[in-house]
Amino acid sequence: MIAVRELTKLYGHTPALDRLSFEVRPGVVTGFLGPNGAGKSTTLRILLGLHRPTSGEALIGGRPYRRIRRPLHEVGAVLDADAAHPGRTARHHLDCLARTNGIGRARVAAVLAEVGLAAVADKRVGGFSLGMRQRLGIAGALLGDPGVIVLDEPVNGLDAAGIRWIRSTLRSLAAQGRTVLLSSHLMSEVALTADRVLILGRGRLLDEISVADLPVRGATLEDVYLRLTGEAAEFRAVPR
């Protein structure tokens, strides 16, 4: 499970996160939505140990990411589709990740096949389309067979078949009892994929929604999102 508790991040005097708290439970796909500047990327970076919070904590399985001894076995994440070096082949990229966490080559071959890249496994990543790089990133996230999956904009660059594939993959992972957190700007895709949705604005949690309850509200996810964030959109430069 993912637990974010009273998470605050200041850049100078500017709050990127303001006492943000939420949980992401196993067995469901949780969508993570918010306008530009809402704090989604900052939250994910703190969760994955890339940034330090000003106060509060972000825990995975009850521990901060930095204390997880073999992280690929517990957490699979994609924050940037261009993380792989363009001069490496897809297989070499995954082999390097696997060696750092004691994962064998058979697993590398298995995830390459799972994401549909087996036929281009020995091609250089620099020649891949954005959709192919997204698939490679997801292969890396699945490499250690982790219980927690965190993906930021995973359908960018994917064609219709690829979008359907990632949707099916995420729902299958959740059905296996894994914890899945999906950040995206594609409202329609989140509505089709997620079971629960967290909506952020100005670094705070505005609402937590069950997608199944939307018909009862007589509204679409987009309707609810725009109503909640209409006054929460804030465009500002936040250092990385």
Results as ranks from 00 to 15, higher is better:
residue 37 G to R: 07
residue 44 L to K: 01
residue 114 E to A: 15
residue 155 V to S: 15
residue 170 L to C: 14
residue 111 V to I: 10
residue 143 L to C: 09
residue 139 A to L: 02
residue 80 D to E: 14
residue 94 L to I: 08
residue 85 H to C: 06
residue 172 S to M: 11
residue 19 R to S: 14
residue 136 L to C: 09
residue 142 L to Y: 14
residue 203 G to E: 05
residue 108 V to Y: 05
residue 102 G to D: 07
residue 147 G to F: 05
residue 223 D to G: 01
residue 201 G to Y: 13
residue 209 I to D: 01
residue 2 I to F: 02
residue 212 A to H: 00
residue 136 L to V: 08
residue 19 R to A: 14
residue 110 A to W: 04
residue 74 E to G: 00
residue 82 D to I: 01
residue 118 A to I: 00
residue 240 R to L: 15
residue 104 G to H: 09
residue 67 R to Y: 04
residue 200 L to D: 01
residue 157 G to N: 12
residue 238 V to R: 09
residue 205 L to T: 06
residue 2 I to W: 00
residue 87 G to T: 04
residue 6 E to N: 15
residue 202 R to N: 07
residue 7 L to E: 11
residue 27 G to I: 15
residue 58 A to F: 03
residue 139 A to K: 08
residue 240 R to A: 13
residue 104 G to K: 08
residue 41 S to R: 01
residue 31 G to V: 13
residue 86 P to Q: 12
residue 117 L to S: 09
residue 182 L to W: 13
residue 24 V to P: 03
residue 84 A to H: 07
residue 102 G to I: 10
residue 159 D to F: 07
residue 143 L to D: 05
residue 92 H to M: 07
residue 134 Q to W: 14
residue 87 G to W: 12
residue 6 E to R: 15
residue 93 H to R: 08
residue 81 A to M: 02
residue 206 L to V: 12
residue 188 S to I: 05
residue 105 R to E: 08
residue 180 V to W: 00
residue 212 A to E: 03
residue 145 D to H: 06
residue 185 H to W: 12
residue 84 A to T: 01
residue 40 K to D: 06
residue 43 T to K: 04
residue 147 G to K: 07
residue 184 S to I: 10
residue 95 D to Q: 14
residue 120 V to Y: 12
residue 97 L to Q: 04
residue 176 Q to D: 13
residue 47 L to I: 11
residue 200 L to K: 07
residue 169 T to W: 15
residue 28 V to H: 08
residue 2 I to P: 02
residue 190 V to Y: 07
residue 10 L to Y: 15
residue 237 A to I: 12
residue 150 V to M: 10
residue 60 I to A: 02
residue 218 G to D: 03
residue 80 D to T: 06
residue 143 L to Q: 08
residue 171 R to L: 09
residue 89 T to D: 06
residue 87 G to N: 11
residue 129 S to D: 10
residue 173 L to F: 13
residue 55 S to N: 00
residue 237 A to K: 14
residue 94 L to C: 08
residue 229 T to V: 10
residue 14 T to G: 00
residue 235 F to M: 11
residue 69 R to H: 12
residue 66 R to C: 01
residue 13 H to G: 06
residue 121 A to T: 06
residue 193 T to Y: 14
residue 169 T to M: 15
residue 38 A to G: 04
residue 219 A to R: 04
residue 33 L to F: 08
residue 78 V to Y: 01
residue 109 A to C: 02
residue 208 E to Y: 10
residue 190 V to W: 10
residue 57 E to T: 14
residue 158 L to S: 12
residue 114 E to R: 15
residue 111 V to S: 07
residue 22 F to Q: 03
residue 184 S to Q: 08
residue 213 D to K: 07
residue 99 R to C: 02
residue 1 M to Q: 06
residue 4 V to K: 05
residue 159 D to R: 09
residue 137 G to T: 08
residue 101 N to Q: 00
residue 123 K to S: 11
residue 120 V to M: 02
residue 181 L to G: 05
residue 155 V to H: 06
residue 55 S to V: 00
residue 166 I to C: 04
residue 202 R to A: 11
residue 210 S to Y: 04
residue 42 T to S: 15
residue 22 F to V: 03
residue 34 G to Y: 11
residue 51 H to F: 11
residue 59 L to K: 05
residue 33 L to H: 10
residue 90 A to K: 11
residue 148 V to D: 01
residue 45 R to C: 05
residue 238 V to K: 08
residue 223 D to E: 05
residue 217 R to K: 12
residue 151 L to P: 06
residue 39 G to F: 12
residue 121 A to Q: 09
residue 160 A to D: 05
